[in-house]
């Protein structure tokens, strides 16, 4: 049986997620790992939007904020179970992305980046200011997702770190699987066609505005679910989750690894998640380094790390 490249990617990713914990010196690394997976999930959404469709969003953090606060507020105010609140947040994010995207994605160029930026900042502002609901800038507690207790009833005892490592790892795999499937689906081909040329895509009968909205809604749902997982894991969420810098960070992760490929983007998420952990001594220089990385990658490795490295290897083979 021939296994296609898509499945090799997934198998490799799954193996990596499963095997790495064997080398963890302490429980802390489970936490770093699950942080990486959550970022990877959000960034996979950016691959669909930016890598496939060529649109840029500077407001993904706004959707992460909606996802995060859905898990904080819905269980307390409406008695929704936290796991369902993830779905609720994703639905709200998707609908908002549709409403914001519909008028704007008819336009070309940098308009979506501007509109999404405005949207993201408005979300952050509401989360900061509506103190009666969100408790303001200090943040708010998020209830326990409750699944770990369920698992231990079935005789599967995991530490908190292990549980979240496994759950976020599985979510990342599912997210990557969907994104990879999408790539070769008719919608994915339409997206990549309009990335090449919107005019050419529309002449072959692609409804350019509609597929762009689909990509934006999908990426919003990814960001929202990632935000929810982050909030549930931390059992706490602050409005910083929706901040502009968080949006920029996500886009940087995606372009660093290679925005056109799922494994590349996940690698980018990995590098930028681990970098601050390694460079804690250099906290002063974090912004300096982040800025340099962003500029350097865009100037010298325009396709991102993974595609550029692959090309370099292929070039040497020939």
């Amino acid at each position: 049986m021939r296994i296609s490249g898509k499945y090799w990617t997934l198998i490799f990713l799954a193996a990596l997620i499963a095997v790495t914990p064997l080398f963890f010196p302490s429980g802390y690394y489970f936490r770093v790992g699950s942080l990486l997976f959550v970022n990877g999930l959000a960034v996979t959404g950016i691959v669909v939007l930016t890598g496939y469709a060529g649109q840029i969003s500077l407001g993904q953090a706004g959707f992460a904020g909606i996802g995060g606060y859905a898990c904080a507020l819905a269980p307390v105010h409406w008695g929704v179970p936290p796991a369902l609140a993830v779905v609720l947040g994703a639905a709200v994010s998707g609908v908002l992305a549709y409403l914001v995207g519909r008028p704007i994605l008819r336009l070309k160029g940098y308009y979506l980046s501007v509109a999404s930026l405005g949207f993201g900042i408005l979300v952050a502002m509401v989360l900061n200011n509506e103190r009666e609901l969100t408790k303001g800038p200090d943040g708010i507690n998020v209830p326990d997702i409750g699944l770990r207790g369920l698992l231990s009833d079935w005789g599967l005892n995991l530490t908190n770190g292990e549980f979240w490592y496994a759950l976020t790892g599985i979510c990342l795999l599912i997210g990557a699987w969907i994104a990879l499937n999408l790539q070769s689906s008719p919608t994915g081909r339409a997206l990549r066609a309009l990335h090449g040329s919107e005019v050419a895509a529309s002449t072959v009968g692609i409804d350019v505005a509609r597929v762009k909205i689909q990509a934006f809604v999908i990426s919003a749902i990814y960001a929202s679910v990632a935000g929810s997982l982050m909030a549930l894991q931390n059992k706490f969420v602050t409005p910083d989750i929706a901040g502009f810098l968080h949006s920029v960070e996500m886009v940087t992760m995606a372009v660093l690894g290679g925005v056109a490929s799922v494994p590349g983007a996940i690698l980018g998420a990995g590098v930028l998640t681990l970098l601050p952990q390694v460079l804690t001594v250099l906290a002063e220089y974090e912004q300096l380094i982040l800025g340099l990385v962003m500029m350097g990658v865009m100037i010298f490795l325009q396709e991102g790390l993974v595609p550029s490295i692959l090309r370099w290897f292929r070039g040497r083979d020939e």
Binding site: T252, E284, Y285, G291, M294, M298
Partner: peptide
């Protein structure tokens, strides 16, 4: 000649870089 996405990210990177440098 880079796409708009790249140019936007470059200028955002520059802004973060200038901010980081000024802070130091």
């Amino acid at each position: 000649g880079a796409p708009v996405v790249s140019l936007i990210i470059i200028t955002i990177g520059a802004s973060i870089f200038i901010r980081g440098a000024s802070q130091l």
